[in-house]
């Protein structure tokens, strides 16, 4: 169902909120890096491209119709440092499908921030947005990303080999997914 949450969303250590114009430098600091862009569809972004991307995102804060997305800046609650971004896309209204995504600054990886933020977005997707299935995908070589999908309780549903071209070479892609029932039983294990 349509979803226009109130921000910020809070977790133990993180604050998730819409992007603002003041975030350009912080975003450029990770989206400008080759290591971050390697497995993204976009190449490393220039500062101007980051400014443009953020301008688009200031409106991406709710789900009204199919294809809409919520893209949120993730910052630490204590120091207010922007450590990355998470997104939830409404892929199918009829079949209640959503897609989850994330990009994090390499300097802040390995502390469970991505896991914490992604879990909060799963709760939002299965909770207020009433989705039936949420999936995520990544390049098969991007092990930290699919390890995170497994930690989130997602199952590997697809392993595509050479089904498209990606940055001048053949792709290899994983799809992971979690159903509403699976999410419910992970949140309330005693009830089943």
């Amino acid at each position: 169902m349509a979803l226009h949450p109130e921000f910020p969303l809070l977790t133990d250590r993180l604050r998730m909120r819409p992007f603002t114009r003041g975030d350009v430098d912080a975003v450029f600091d990770y989206r400008g890096r080759e290591a971050v862009a390697r497995y993204l569809f976009d190449p490393p972004l220039s500062r101007d491209e980051c400014a443009l991307a953020i301008q688009q995102r200031t409106n991406q804060t709710g789900l009204s119709e199919e294809g809409d997305r919520i893209v949120l800046a993730v910052e630490t609650r204590d120091a207010g440092v922007l450590v990355g971004e998470v997104s939830l896309i409404w892929r199918s209204v009829e079949a209640r499908q959503g897609e989850l995504g994330w990009i994090f600054h390499p300097d802040h990886q390995g502390r469970g921030y991505a896991s914490e933020a992604a879990n909060a977005l799963l709760d939002l997707g299965f909770g207020a947005a009433d989705l039936h299935r949420i999936f995520a995908r990544c390049d098969a070589r991007n092990e930290p990303s699919w390890r995170l999908m497994e930690r989130l309780g997602m199952r590997r549903e697809a392993h595509f080999r050479q089904h498209a071209l990606f940055k001048g070479g053949w792709d290899e892609e994983f799809y992971y997914a979690i159903l509403r029932d699976e999410w419910l039983s992970s949140r309330h294990p005693g009830d089943f």
Binding site: S92, A95, Q97, H132, R133, F135, A158, H159, R161, L179
Partner: peptide, 20 residues
Amino acid sequence: LEAHYREHALFQGEWDEELH
């Protein structure tokens, strides 16, 4: 077998199970 989708769409009015 490359993909095993569970309930990723509705097919003939029911949740699907689709293999690629």
